[in-house]
Amino acid sequence: MLEAQEPLPVCTFTGETRKMSETAPFTVSSFYRFVSEKRLMAAKCNECGTEILPPKPMCTNCFSTNLKWIELDGAGKLLSYTIIYVAPEQFQSMAPYTVGIVELQNGLRLPGMIRGVNPEDIKIGMKLKIGFETSTSLQWPAWTRYFFKPA
């Protein structure tokens, strides 16, 4: 709930967003604040060039804290998937649902739900793109969810 009460980043479509992008701390919370703005962001080390997803406050390749945010296009391909029948309580109303691991540009990866495709039509290697929920969970940690859908 604390997260939800914090002011959201400055308007998505103004120049100020870039400014916000440069100053947001390199945390998972910042990642999800960008998701609430329909943006998929990763960290990049200004010293060694490593791209870091999930974002971390220190480059785990060269230990530099000289980082910047980069925006990913959200296009990717499916590396593996499963269909979950026995779900945790808060997901039971959605079961069965499909989740997968998606390789994004430059080899970065995220797991997520795959929506808008029948389980029998899912294939490893298929092209997907990111989507963003419009509502934000009220439950801690009150992040907006992203998901994947056919490209």
Binding site: V28, F31, Y32, P54, T82, I84, V86, A87, P88, Q90, F91, M94, Y97, V99, L110, P111, G112, M113, P141, W143, R145, F147
Partner: peptide, 12 residues
């Protein structure tokens, strides 16, 4: 933040 939050279980 990425596995549990997206409904991925251990069997998953």
């Amino acid at each position: 933040p990425f596995e549990q939050w997206n409904g991925i279980t251990f069997p998953g």
